[in-house]
Amino acid sequence: MPKKRDAKKINFTSIAEVPTMPMSLGSMLWNKTGTWRNIRPEIKLEDCIQCGICWKFCPDMSILIENEWPVVDYDFCKGCGICAEECPAKCIVMVEERK
């Protein structure tokens, strides 16, 4: 089961806080790439055959496996549509994002 993802942005207040060697201090999880999306994938779980192909081909690691079922992480899904295209049971549909 994937644990809850934390996200924080690093703000340096003074020059003394900046490390002398350029090194990474945090992950990119603050960057919610879900806002890039025009169409969103929706999984009809009643047709799902649990093959894991959507999970395997997701370039944004935003299909999570929770309790043996695929779940879309809408915080990071960029809406490329690979999962809907590759799903052998055709149970993922891309619907227009509205807000």
Partner: peptide, 12 residues
């Protein structure tokens, strides 16, 4: 590889 990366949609 973590989510939130700066790749384009559908990046190989």
């Amino acid at each position: 590889v973590g989510s939130g990366n700066l790749a384009c949609q559908g990046c190989g």
